[in-house]
Design a protein around this nucleic acid. Structure first.
Lengths: 191, 191, 191, 191
DNA sequence: GATGAATGAGAATTCATTCAT
DNA sequence: CATGAATGAATTCTCATTCAT
């Protein structure tokens, strides 16, 4: 999810695995998981249907890998020096980075949020997502326990769900929703 | 021997209509719209597949009626005397009622949020939802314009997305998510 | 198929059997046998679906009875005094009567011709139709054997198929097709 | 190991396309369009149901292609040098060729006539058929205007419907109906 | 690795027919 | 006699997945 150099992009392009992943992300996010067909993904990736099954076990495995590899890219970001310590400036930076991350990967987050609202599939996926969420949740609790006497867990949790709410509203209508203004308001309310 | 009276038939119809609607809500919310099959709904309702089509034109019509009749129930609630005026006490009451409404209809709101995150289908449905959303958005703007000098629209928008975020978190894990505590925090932050 | 008096029509109207038959003829001829549903027939007849099954064993039985009762009405017409003797004037009258019969029962003949081109159903029906056809075929052979030395059977057969061809063209586009002019030409060619 | 060449694939496609078309013609003509199921066609073609949809968009598209490709084969025949000029010998040839064409494609013509007697479907198809029919109608009018002073249009129209009548009688009972003898009689009557 | 023809399970929907009332 | 709710088999069509090449 972090910005990629041109060279990295070229490598991904050459790599069939990455090509398929990108095509699938686009098709999934445009059509929704169930309406997205393997055929459409293959056409988007400009390869054959069969080849997808050389790289991925199933349509569901493809979805899982998209979601998880997206999260994996974030992991480093939220816990850079593994100390989980946020200054006030870093808190602002943290929130603003979030916006940037979402803006640069609208397709991904569109898919992400539509997926977490589906029961049936995805028990495994949910666990992994939980795991990841813990990481940045911890950072937030730590921050609030230093700034906000009463109930840091609750504060962190509210911030998390608020950001989810914002992200959902934004990916649903990126042209209209004033995500930056909203984030500034959040910063004011949670500082 | 003699055919059933019109009254008897009307009752049968009303009952079955409700039974199908309930079954569909459960199956839709557990599986998501696309994975929920008419077969599964029929089995849940303990009727035949064909009967569903005596009561609803199509799978999509069934979804529409579920979503819209759910919203219709809310309409009266958010605009009781049609003035859209909220006192501070009413603001608290408003938020707490929201929780109650969500708690009592977890399946419905699970479905509702999974639907608004789907692009493919449902243009008509989205319009109707927008219409409804406007109603309570107006009330909030009105409230904030009396309490919060700076930017009532932004404030109302943030509250709306925050509540959506909370609702989504809650319906995804009703056992764990401390919705009441969260709402209290929201009240504090937005008053 | 012969014109009915007003009283006869009223009797038919009162008679459910006849009502159903009429409704079915209309719906069959407008939609074709397979696309015509029992529901539509019931609606057209302004009765319930179930009642149709009090009078007819099945949809197919209904079709059979329509076709056969239509033919039965013709039987008397073509063999009034059972002698099968046609003068030249009667020959003209015969052909002109045919036109009249078709014009007055477009729906019936539309259905009739669409039915005889379907293999699957209707073995029984075909036999009955054959039987009927024989009747007026005989009359024609008799006529031609008195007027046309060479091959009366062939002449009669050609006239029959020619008339079928005309009838089909007419029922397919009654507004445009100049059936009367055509019949006059036929009279000229076969006299 | 290596994928099939484009040429191989094209051959497979062409073959299967033809196999499906043949099977569909048989099943359609035996059962009528509505009673002919995709399942039956697949079974006749000895392939899976799904494959039919790799080659044809829908059941209706399949019917259209059968009918239209059949007509296309005729186009060249009736308008060889595009002048629409028929000598008397050519007129005889024309009629005799017609018989041959029908005899060699009984299934096709059975289907053709059952289709033009159906209202429901097929508006597009009917238009195309009209277009084609015009072509040979023009040739006939031209012929009769040179041979028959009175009313060439009527003459051409009667010949057309007569031939339709003959064709229908023949395809309904190819074993019994003396099509050749009939055609000779037609030639005599229309020359 | 790569292709895409082929499969078959399953989806939504229709509709003739039954039957309790 | 009459009703229409209810059934379930059959239909068209889709699509993830397989596999010969």
């Amino acid at each position: 999810m972090s910005p990629r150099t041109k060279k990295q992009l070229d490598e991904i392009k050459k790599d069939k695995h990455g090509i398929i992943l990108n095509a699938a992300l686009i098709v999934f996010s445009e059509n929704g998981y169930h309406s997205a067909s393997i055929s459409k993904i293959a056409k988007t990736a400009e390869i054959s249907k069969g080849l997808i099954y050389n790289y991925f076990e199933s349509k569901e495995a493809l979805l899982n890998e998209i979601i998880l590899s997206g999260l994996a890219k974030l992991t480093g970001f939220f816990n850079p020096n593994n100390d989980g310590f946020l200054t006030e400036d870093e808190f602002d930076l943290f929130l603003n980075s979030l916006t940037k991350i979402i803006k640069e990967n609208i397709s991904y987050w569109k898919l992400y949020y539509s997926v977490i609202l589906q029961h049936s599939v995805l028990e495994l996926l949910k666990e992994k997502i939980m795991e990841f969420t813990q990481g940045y949740f911890t950072i937030l609790i730590n921050y609030f326990s230093r700034h906000n006497s009463k109930n840091p867990e609750a504060e962190a949790m509210l911030l998390t769900t608020t950001l989810d709410g914002l992200a959902i509203a934004y990916v649903n209508d990126p042209e209209q929703f004033p995500i930056d203004e909203m984030i500034q308001l959040v910063i004011k309310k949670f500082k």
